[in-house]
Design a protein around this nucleic acid. Sequence first.
DNA 1: GTTGTGACATCGC
DNA 2: CGCGATGCCACAA
Length: 121
Amino acid sequence: MTPFFSSPPDLMEFKLKVWGVVKRIPPGNVATYGQVAALVQLPAGVAPQDYRAVGARWVGQAMAGSPPGVPWQRVINSQGKISLSGPSAETQRQLLEEEGVVFDGRGRVDLKKYQWQPHSS
DNA sequence: GTTGTGACATCGC
DNA sequence: CGCGATGCCACAA
């Protein structure tokens, strides 16, 4: 089913970098896994094209073990939807709605409006 | 040592 | 434009 594939050479190191990026996402904004992966420095010993292929999944793996203080709810998939299933998905949606993020009838957010723009610090 | 399970992105219909 | 199927590895129990 939902594939995952491999993990970075230094999983812990990678997680820390991912969390660092996620923490920079402002309230009311969201970022995709692929976007976060692109913002994270390329781990040593990993081919760029290879990273591009699995980076997003590595981010997901990193989020799975995100510690308190990390706004994991602001990270969603490229379709603008919540990747989680079950109660956790409702929790994430609830948190985002309280930040001002609006979900449409299909449970999707408008990335054109809410996707985080890193350069506009 | 074997089995099951994984916060995604992309292509096609 | 939206929804469904596909890809195929590492780690925990």
